[in-house]
Write a protein that binds this DNA or RNA. Sequence first.
DNA 1: AAGGTTAATGCAACCGGTTGCATTAACCTT
DNA 2: AAGGTTAATGCAACCGGTTGCATTAACCTT
Lengths: 337, 337
Amino acid sequence: MAVTIHDIAKKVGVSPSTVSRVINGKATISSETKEKIFAAMEELNFHPSSLARNLATGSSQAIALIINAEDTKSFANQFFNRSVFGIEKIAQARGFNLIITNDNSADGSPVEQLVYAKKADGIIIPPAIVTPKLISRLRKLHFPFVILGEPAISKNEVNWVDVNNAQGSELAVQHLAAQGYQSIAFIGESQDLVFMRNRVNGFRTGLEAQRLELTDGFIAECDGTHESACQAALALLEKNLRPDAFICSDNAIAYGVISAVKKKGLHIPGEIGVVTFDNYPLALYMEPNLTAVDIDTFLLGEQAAAILFKSIEENGNLQQILINTRLFERESTNRKN
Amino acid sequence: MAVTIHDIAKKVGVSPSTVSRVINGKATISSETKEKIFAAMEELNFHPSSLARNLATGSSQAIALIINAEDTKSFANQFFNRSVFGIEKIAQARGFNLIITNDNSADGSPVEQLVYAKKADGIIIPPAIVTPKLISRLRKLHFPFVILGEPAISKNEVNWVDVNNAQGSELAVQHLAAQGYQSIAFIGESQDLVFMRNRVNGFRTGLEAQRLELTDGFIAECDGTHESACQAALALLEKNLRPDAFICSDNAIAYGVISAVKKKGLHIPGEIGVVTFDNYPLALYMEPNLTAVDIDTFLLGEQAAAILFKSIEENGNLQQILINTRLFERESTNRKN
DNA sequence: AAGGTTAATGCAACCGGTTGCATTAACCTT
DNA sequence: AAGGTTAATGCAACCGGTTGCATTAACCTT
C-alpha cells in the first residue's frame, strides 16, 4: 500500500540497503546515486515507516512522562504543562516522541507495560511513585529513567532534577529581611514530602544567614486548602509575639493567609509581608498582588529530558540537578514606597 | 536478548503462531496448551514487544495530541492538562499511548512527520493549525483526526468537539437577569476566533431570550491583558448609560474589569455584577470571588478521544459534539444576600 | 607493475511479532 | 459407515526497515 524502501530501490535500480544508507546518511554513497534516490523519494512521496525502523533498531524513539492525574497538587496546575513543553522540546529536537501515561494504579502496571513492551526508551517519573521495588526493577532492566523531583529514597543513586526549594526559601527570607521584616513564619503542608522539607530547611538556613530568630511555632502546617491556611495564620496572628511576615508554600495557602491578615485588620505590606511559592497568574491577580518565588518549570522539563537522553545514550550516567528559583517582587512585600 | 515468542514456543513445544494466538486470544486453543503457554510466559517473564507487534499489525497503538506551546491562550492553562488527562484516560483504556507533539512551525512539518511516519494512528489537533491544505492532506491519506474546538472552516465535514460557548453566554445572561441586572456588557477578545464569535452570538440570543436590550457598544473587545480589559471597562463605565453587569471571556479580563469597577468606586455585586468564563482557582481567589462559567475540559478530552477512536475503527465516521457548560454562582453576582 | 587501500554497493539475515491457508484428528449427522 | 464439520495447530510469508560481511572496481604507493 504505502511506498517502501523497496519501491525506491527498484525505481532507482539499487538495493534497499543503499536506500536505507542514504536515508540515514550512513556510509559513503556516490552523490549521483544519492541524487537519484532523493529524487525518487520525492517523486513517490516516500516516508520511512517508523514502525519498521523501530523494530529494526530496537528503539521506540519515544520517551514517556508518567503522571498521576489524581495528584492535583503536582499535576493539575501550571507546573505541569510548562514542564511537559520543556520535555517535549528536547525530545522533538532528537526526533523522539513524548508519551504521557497516567499511573494511579496500586501496582504500577501502566509503567510496567510501558517498560516491558518497550513502548519508550526511557521514562520520567514523579517522586510520588518511586518505590525501592520500582527502582530495582528499572535498574535490573537497565531501563533509563529520571525522577522529576528529588526522591525520598536513593537520592544519590538515581537521576533526578528538582527546583532548589531550599534556595527558594532562602531567597524569600533574604528579601523579607531586606524589607525590614524580622519575625518571619513559614506556612506549608505536611513535611512528609521532600520538597516541603527542603523548603523548611531553607527557611531555617535563610533565617540564620540573616541572623533572624526562629520563633517557636513559626513553622506551621496546614492541609493545603485556603481555609486551613487561614486557620493556621490566624493562630499565629493571635499570639503575643505575632509574625510580621509569612512565607507560603503555594498560592492557595497565600490566599488563606491574606484572608487571615485582613480579618485581623492588619495591613499588607505595612504590617505584614507575604511571599508565596509559585509565580502563577494567581499571585499576580490577588489583592494585594504577591511577591513570589518563581520556579522555571519549563527549564525543569528540559533538564529532565536532557538527563534522560544522556542516560539513554550512555547507560550508567548519573546526574542530579537543582534549578535555582528567582524572586518576583510585588506589592505584598513592598514596604518602601 | 529479550525473551521472544519463539522462546516460549520452543519451551512449550508448539509453534510461534500458537503462542501469538494465545496472547491475543484469537482462534480456539486447547486449554491444556493455553495453560502451558501462560506458565512458560510467566516463568520466562515474557512480555511481547510492541515494536514487533506494531510493525506486524501496521498500527502504532498511539494517538497524538498536537499543541502549540506558544499559544498560551489555549495551552498554558488549566484547560490544557485536564483535557490531556481526559484524552489519556480513553487512550489507556484501549491500550493506546498518548503522544504530545508541539507544532509551532510555519509548515506543519512536525504533524506531517507524525502522520507520514505512522507514529500515531490518529491525531487531535487544535483549531488554530487547521488549514484547508492540512484537512485535504489528512483526508487523502484517510488519516483519522479530530479537532479540539470548532474549526473556522469545513465545520460540517470534519470531526470536532467543543464547549458550547454560546450556551455558556446564555447561561451567564440568564443568571444575571435573574439577579436583576438589566444592562449587560460582554468583554472579550478579537472575534477572529470562532469560540469568541460563538460567545458573542450566545450573548445576543441570551439577551433576546431574557427580553433585555443590547446597548450599542456593549460588546467590547480588548487584547486579553487585564490592563486592556480595564481600559475597555472604564470606557463603558464612563458612558451616560453604563452597564450594570459584565460577562468576561476569561479570568484575566475579569480581573481588569474588577479593577475598573473599583476605580470608579462602584460596588460588586451591589451596583455591578461580574461573570467570567473559565472556572479556574483564579475565579475563586479573586476579590470578590467570581461567578464563573465552568468548562468541563476533562470531558472535552474524553469526547475528543472517543470520536477519534470511532474514526480509527470505522473510517468515514463523522461527528461534531458540543459540551454544555455549568454556572458556578459566587459573590460577584450575589445581589440577594 | 604488483600489492594494498578505499569508495560504493549488494546479499542475506535479522528485528519479533501476525495471519491466511493448509493439515490432521476427532466428532457429528443421517 | 461414509461424508461433512469443527477444533487445534503448524507452515511460511509478511510487515518495512537495518546492518555485518563480502565483493568489485578504481585509485594509491613505492
